[in-house]
Nucleic acid binder design. Structure first.
Lengths: 209, 209
DNA sequence: CACCTTATTGATCGCATGATCAATATATCG
DNA sequence: CGATATATTGATCATGCGATCAATAAGGTG
């Protein structure tokens, strides 16, 4: 790997440059994980001196935490939009499971797994992880609540059920990261599991083409 | 933290010293995670010069991988022994879920989570992770197979069901690591989920006192 | 008791990390 | 067109990591 020469970066407005650095961090995190979000790596990616990254960020811990939050919140927004277009809670829940387990978001899964590990040594990141988990759980909770009201879901403790489903999804994705190829069957059985949890009949969560 | 003076370590047989270093690594990993298994930390814990750790280990990557395997295999052995005393697959599966999710093994969970993350940059560790996951999945598979034969489990794909349950357990434990206190309700709903997955009737997996 | 094998160590290297600061160069304003 | 505010940088520091090697010292053996 040769050292690419870096010409002096063009002078830009703080807002623009800061946004470029944030974006560089996002890309590096998605491509190489949160561990690779280092002062020098982000600087190189943004085409800028390391000191400039430090200039625009209070600390690398903070940049890592913000990058995590950015990536995860973005995915939540996308999925929320997708689900909003569906007619009811049953369709929303089935689609949510299928989408999260379709194996096309391994880059985000890596970010999650590394955040769990790094959060033990980065307080800001740990706080971000809790916030994002709460937000995801809230999405699930709303779907389940609506399901209880309108679609025959049986959930004595909606909060616990939402946490449970979230944990299952996260675990299956993390596991798929390590296992050999067969990512396809990742979601093959979770429908049955969630149906059992919520008192639905077998096949209730199947999503029609 | 003062720098504790270290007197020259007593001369011991290679087998004994090597075992002490392995044990030091195990303790450090359980107390502070795999990330803390560094040359200097293990040396300090074992009361020995850093160079001696390097002398007895081919590399730190290898020590981290072995430490992970040691800890996880030990837990598997313990649980296997516990389950062997139970009368049938239903009791074994219920007890397995309750035991793994009782919240008393967070130190091992941290080791798992860090292994997933570190495995991306430590090939030996990644191989150990795959091996240990396979071993855990095999335990679950045997229980489910027996359940299909003798206890009315319905599992068209026993392999997939075993992976699924393993992923769910790992995910719930990893999640509990981050969430606020309430570790107790961790396993409250997984019985229903697994019952749904395996076609068992509600409450089938409940473990009598 | 003396010798010799070898367990153990201190010193050191190379590398990567985050952070700081004076110096430099550039865009914009008067 | 010149002056000024400030975006950008190179240099440098302190820290922690894994690894290597000649030097040291302790235990077992003859």
């Amino acid at each position: 790997m040769s050292t690419p020469v870096r010409t002096r970066a063009a002078r830009k407005s703080p807002a623009e440059r800061s946004a470029e650095i944030v974006e560089a961090a996002r890309l590096v995190a998605l491509e190489q994980g949160l561990t690779a979000v280092t002062l020098r790596a982000i600087a190189a990616r943004a085409g800028v001196a390391p000191a400039l990254v430090a200039h625009y960020q209070p600390s690398m811990d903070a940049l890592v935490a913000d990058t995590f939050a950015h990536i995860v919140a973005e995915e939540l927004d996308e999925l929320s939009g997708l689900l909003a277009a569906l007619p009811g809670p049953t369709e929303r829940l089935g689609t949510l499971l299928d989408t999260l387990l379709d194996g096309t978001r391994d880059d985000v899964t890596i970010v999650w797994v590394e955040a769990w590990a790094l959060g033990r040594r980065n307080d800001a990141l740990a706080a971000s992880v809790r916030t994002q988990m709460d937000d995801w759980q809230a999405l699930l909770r709303r779907i389940i609540e609506e399901g209880v009201d309108r679609a025959g879901f049986r959930a004595p403790d909606v909060d616990a059920a939402a946490w449970q489903i979230l944990g299952m999804v996260d675990g299956l994705n993390a596991q798929a990261l390590v296992r050999w190829g067969d990512a396809s069957e990742r979601g093959s059985l979770i429908h049955g599991a969630v149906e059992g949890m919520l008192g639905l009949q077998h096949g209730a969560l199947a999503v029609p083409d």
